[in-house]
Computed example of a mutant assay.
Amino acid sequence: MGASHTQTSAVGTGRGLSYLMFAVVVIVYLALIQGGGLLMKHLTGEDDFLSTRAVFYIMIIPLGAALAFTYAVIGYLGWLRPVLHDDRPTQSWVRVVPIVFLIAIAGGIAYSALSQKGWLYVVALLIATQFVGWGEEGMFRGIGVVMLREHGLTEGRVALWSSVIFGAVHLTNAISHGASALPQAIMVSLAGYFFYLIRRVTRGNAANSIIHGLFDFTLLSGTAILAEQTFYAGTLLPILVYPLLAIILLIKRRHIEPAVS
C-alpha cells in the first residue's frame, strides 16, 4: 500500500500510505457500500429502509463489509493507535461542538414514529447507522487524517483536505439521488470538519464515530421514516446544527489550537 517508512511522527513503526493508494482504498470502500447496496436491492427487491428486512440487507450488510475493510486496512498499516487516539489537543471551548450535536440528537429523534416501527427495527437501524459512523470516521478522520499528517501537512490543511475529501466522496450518491448529491456533498464537507474537531477535543476517534452514527440515526428517524406522516418539529434541530456551529467556529476559528505559553 505504497509503503514508506521515512515519516514516523504519528505512525511510528507502521507502514506509510501514499495519496494514490489512499485513493484506491477509498474507491474500494465506496464500491463495497454503493455496489453492495445496489446488489442487495437487486437480490432482495427492497428499495428503501423502512422495514427491518430492508435495513438488514441494503444497509447492515454492505456497511458492515465496508467497516470490516476499513479496520482491516488500519490493521495492515499498523495504524490502530494513531487512528483511535489523537495527540493534538484543542482549547477547551471546542467541547461545544459535541455538546451541540448531542442536544440535537436527543431532541431530534422521532421517538413516537420509531415506537410504531418496533424494537427490532430500532435496533437494526441503530446498528446500521453505527456502522456508518465507525466506518466513515475510521476511513476519513482515522486513515485520512493520519495519512495527511504523515505527509507533513499543517493541521489546518489536514482539517481542510480531510473534510473536502469526505464531502467529495459523497458525490457518488448521485448514483441513487441524482443532482441532489451536490448540495449534500457540500454539507457533508462541513459536517466532516465538525467531526474532525470532535476527534481532536475528545482525543480519539470513538466519540466522533458514535456521535456520527447517532446523528445519522436522528436524521433518518426524523425524515425518511416520517416521510409520509405529519411534519415533526424535532427534525429542525439537526438541520440547525450546521449554521449554529458554522457561526461559532467562524468567530472562534483563530482560537482552536492550544495557546502557546
Rank of each mutant, 00 (worst) to 15 (best):
H5R: 13
R15G: 01
G16F: 05
G16L: 02
Y19V: 13
F22I: 03
A23L: 14
A23V: 11
V24W: 00
V25H: 00
I27E: 00
L30V: 14
L30S: 09
A31C: 10
L32N: 04
I33G: 06
Q34V: 15
G35A: 12
G37N: 11
G37T: 14
L39R: 03
H42D: 14
H42W: 11
T44D: 13
D47G: 08
D47A: 15
F49D: 05
F49H: 14
S51C: 07
T52L: 09
A54Y: 02
A54L: 06
A54I: 04
F56N: 00
F56Q: 01
M59P: 00
L67P: 02
F69C: 02
T70D: 03
Y76I: 04
L77Y: 03
G78S: 11
G78H: 11
G78E: 14
L80D: 00
L80Y: 11
H85W: 09
D86I: 04
D87I: 06
R88M: 12
P89E: 13
P89Y: 13
T90S: 14
Q91W: 00
Q91M: 11
S92E: 14
W93I: 12
V94R: 02
V94D: 05
V94T: 10
V96S: 02
V96E: 01
V97L: 08
F101H: 01
F101R: 06
I103T: 11
I103K: 06
A104K: 08
G108R: 10
G108D: 05
I109V: 15
A110W: 12
S115P: 00
Q116A: 15
K117Q: 15
L120F: 09
V123A: 13
V123F: 03
A124H: 07
I127P: 02
A128M: 04
A128P: 04
F131M: 14
F131G: 02
G133L: 12
E137K: 09
G138K: 03
F140D: 01
F140W: 13
I143S: 07
V145R: 06
V146Q: 05
L148E: 01
R149P: 05
E150R: 09
H151I: 05
G152A: 13
L153E: 12
T154L: 04
E155N: 07
E155Y: 00
G156M: 07
S162D: 04
S163E: 07
G167N: 09
G167M: 08
G167S: 06
A168D: 01
V169C: 13
L171A: 02
G178L: 12
A179G: 03
P183I: 13
P183Y: 10
P183A: 08
A185F: 06
I186D: 08
M187V: 15
S189R: 02
L190W: 09
L190T: 14
F194E: 02
I198R: 08
I198H: 04
R200M: 12
T202P: 03
G204I: 10
L214W: 03
D216P: 07
D216Y: 07
L220Y: 14
L220E: 09
A224M: 11
L226V: 15
L226P: 01
A227E: 12
F231N: 04
Y232A: 10
A233W: 13
A233G: 02
G234A: 06
P238A: 00
I239R: 03
P243W: 00
L245I: 04
L245R: 00
A246K: 10
I247Q: 03
I248T: 08
L249I: 11
L249D: 09
R253V: 07
P258T: 11
P258L: 08
A259Y: 08
V260H: 12
S261F: 06
